[in-house]
C-alpha cells in the first residue's frame, strides 16, 4: 500500500513470530498453547526428524489497530510450514473459538500444504479447518488471509486461503494448489519448468492473482504494508451466503470464458487491457497499482 522506503522491513524475510509482532499492536499478543506447553508433533520421530515445540504455527489473540482479533501464523522455515495433526488442530480450535466469540481472525499463511510424514492427519486437518472457517464466516465473522511468506501458500493451504473472506498478497506471495516442482515432476518440464522463476510469478505470483481478482489487496513486501492491508481487509464484507456463492460462481465462470484459452499470464494481462503486459513484473508497487486498479478483475466480495 506504500512505496518502498528506506525503513522497509521485509515480510517475506521475517519469521512467523516476527510477522505477528509487527502486524499486531505492540504488546497486545497472547499466545495459546505456546512452545512452553511442548505440544509438538508425535509423528516426526518415526522419520527421525526434529520437532518444533509449537509445531510450526503460533495461535493467539491480540489487537490490530485497536480492534481485537484472533491470529495464527505459520512458520515456513519449519518443514516448509507444512500442516500436520497438531499444527492443523491449533488452527481448527482457534477458528471454532472465533465462531463462538464472533471475533475476526487473521491467518498469516506460509505453507507448502500437507505435511507428508503425517499426510492423512494433515489432509483431514485441512478439511476440518475449511469447515470451521466456513461455519465461522456464516456467523458474520471475517477470516482474512495474508499471503507473502517464503514457503508461499500451496496445496491444501491454498484451499484454506480460498475460503477466507478477504486476501492480502505481496508480489512475493505465491498462491496455487500444485507447486511448480509438483507439476514438473508429474507432467514434465515442458508443462512447467520450475526453474523458470519468471514463469512461476506470472502463473501464481501476487501480481497475477491480484489482476485476475483472486485476491482483494496488493501490498509491498513490508511489515507495515501488510498491517495496513490487514486493517483494510477487516473492513471488507463478511457475508457468506447463497448470493455470495452465486456471485463467486459467476465471477469464476466469467474468468474462464474470458481467459480460459490464454497460454500465459502476460496474455491474460493483455486481454485485461494492461498496457505493455510484458513489463508488469518489473513495475514497482505504486506503478503496478496505478495500472491494476483500473484494469483488474474485481473480486467483488464474491468469495
Amino acid at each position: 500500500m506504500t512505496s518502498p522506503s528506506p525503513t522497509r522491513h521485509s515480510w517475506y524475510e521475517e519469521s512467523a513470530r516476527g510477522r505477528l509482532a509487527h502486524l499486531l499492536d505492540p504488546g497486545s499478543f497472547t499466545e495459546f498453547l505456546g512452545p512452553e506447553r511442548r505440544e509438538f508433533s508425535p509423528h516426526l520421530g518415526l522419520f527421525n526428524l526434529p520437532h518444533q515445540l509449537d509445531d510450526g504455527i503460533i495461535v493467539g489473540n491480540g489487537k490490530l489497530d485497536g480492534r481485537p482479533v484472533l491470529a495464527a501464523a505459520q512458520e515456513g522455515r519449519f518443514m516448509g510450514g507444512a500442516i500436520g495433526e497438531v499444527h492443523g488442530a491449533k488452527l481448527t480450535g482457534l477458528l471454532r473459538a472465533a465462531r463462538q466469540m464472533k471475533r475476526d481472525v487473521v491467518i498469516l499463511f506460509d505453507t507448502g500444504g500437507v505435511r507428508l510424514q503425517e499426510a492423512n492427519a494433515g489432509e483431514l486437518a485441512i478439511s476440518e479447518i475449511i469447515r470451521a472457517t466456513l461455519e465461522t464466516r456464516a456467523e458474520g465473522v471475517r477470516v482474512i488471509g495474508l499471503l507473502g511468506g517464503r514457503a508461499g501458500c500451496y496445496g491444501g493451504g491454498s484451499l484454506i486461503a480460498g475460503c477466507c473472506s478477504a486476501l492480502v498478497i505481496s508480489e512475493q506471495g505465491r498462491l496455487s494448489v500444485s507447486g511448480p516442482e509438483v507439476i514438473e515432476t508429474n507432467k514434465g518440464v515442458e508443462e512447467f519448468d520450475s526453474r523458470d522463476r519468471a514463469l512461476v510469478w506470472r502463473t501464481m505470483g501476487g501480481k497475477h492473482r491480484y489482476l485476475i481478482g483472486g485476491v482483494d489487496l496488493f501490498v509491498d513486501d513490508d511489515v507495515a504494508a501488510f498491517r495496513a492491508g490487514a486493517v483494510a481487509a477487516l473492513e471488507r464484507p463478511a457475508a457468506l451466503n447463497q448470493a455470495v456463492l452465486a456471485a463467486e460462481q459467476a465471477r469464476l465462470e466469467r474468468r474462464l470464458a474470458r481467459f480460459g484459452d490464454a497460454a500465459d499470464g502476460a496474455e491474460v494481462w493483455a486481454r485485461l487491457g494492461v498496457p505493455h503486459p510484458a513489463t508488469v513484473p518489473d513495475l514497482d508497487t505504486s506503478a503496478f497499482l496505478t495500472i491494476a486498479t483500473s484494469k483488474r478483475e474485481g473480486a467483488d466480495a464474491a468469495r
Binding site: 484451499l159 494448489v177 500444485s178 507439476i183 483472486g214 469464476l252 474468468r255 499470464g265
Partner: peptide, 17 residues
C-alpha cells in the same frame, strides 16, 4: 489436475468454491 493452465486460472479458488 496438475497443469499450468489450471493454476493460471486459479484452481485453488475454484476447488475452494
Amino acid at each position: 489436475r496438475m497443469s499450468r493452465r489450471d493454476e493460471l486460472m486459479g484452481l485453488s479458488e475454484t476447488l475452494a468454491h
